[in-house]
Simulated assay, not measured.
Amino acid sequence: MESKYIISLNQFADFSKGTNASKRRIIKQQKVPNKFMVAWYQLPKARIRKSIANHCDLKPILDGIEELKLRKPEKQRQVLDRAVSIEALNRYVGIKLPDILRSVPYKIIKKVESKSIILNGIQIVISPDVIFKLKIDGKIYLGAVKVHISKNNIFDNIQSRYISSLLYKYLKEVVATENEVVLDELCLSIDVFGDKVISVPENLSKSLSDIKGICEEVKSLWNVA
Score class of each variant (00 low, 15 high):
residue 193 F to E: 10
residue 116 S to T: 11
residue 56 C to F: 08
residue 71 R to Q: 15
residue 5 Y to V: 02
residue 38 V to D: 08
residue 39 A to S: 15
residue 141 Y to W: 08
residue 42 Q to N: 12
residue 136 I to G: 00
residue 37 M to V: 07
residue 30 Q to H: 07
residue 188 L to T: 05
residue 61 I to A: 08
residue 36 F to V: 04
residue 34 N to F: 00
residue 209 S to C: 06
residue 114 S to Q: 05
residue 199 S to N: 14
residue 127 S to V: 02
residue 192 V to F: 08
residue 94 G to S: 09
residue 8 S to L: 14
residue 192 V to T: 04
residue 135 K to H: 06
residue 108 I to F: 11
residue 111 K to I: 13
residue 200 V to F: 02
residue 76 Q to L: 15
residue 207 S to G: 01
residue 160 S to H: 06
residue 77 R to Y: 12
residue 53 A to G: 13
residue 166 L to N: 02
residue 115 K to A: 14
residue 17 K to W: 09
residue 28 K to Y: 06
residue 37 M to T: 00
residue 59 K to I: 12
residue 212 K to T: 02
residue 153 N to I: 03
residue 113 E to C: 11
residue 82 R to V: 00
residue 40 W to C: 03
residue 145 V to E: 14
residue 189 S to C: 14
residue 192 V to C: 09
residue 66 E to C: 04
residue 166 L to K: 07
residue 118 I to G: 02
residue 61 I to Q: 09
residue 199 S to P: 11
residue 146 K to H: 00
residue 183 L to S: 10
residue 85 S to F: 04
residue 31 K to P: 05
residue 32 V to L: 15
residue 157 N to D: 14
residue 118 I to Y: 04
residue 144 A to R: 01
residue 224 V to I: 13
residue 112 V to G: 05
residue 2 E to C: 07
residue 28 K to G: 01
residue 139 K to H: 09
residue 29 Q to R: 13
residue 179 N to D: 15
residue 117 I to Y: 14
residue 99 D to P: 12
residue 15 F to R: 04
residue 43 L to W: 04
residue 158 I to E: 12
residue 55 H to R: 14
residue 157 N to P: 00
residue 64 G to N: 10
residue 43 L to I: 15
residue 125 V to E: 12
residue 85 S to N: 10
residue 90 N to H: 09
residue 93 V to Q: 10
residue 206 K to T: 08
residue 34 N to C: 01
residue 122 I to E: 01
residue 149 I to V: 12
residue 15 F to N: 04
residue 222 W to E: 01
residue 35 K to M: 12
residue 200 V to W: 02
residue 192 V to K: 04
residue 69 K to H: 11
residue 67 E to L: 13
residue 159 Q to T: 01
residue 80 L to A: 13
residue 56 C to I: 11
residue 165 S to Q: 05
residue 16 S to M: 09
residue 184 D to Q: 07
residue 23 K to F: 03
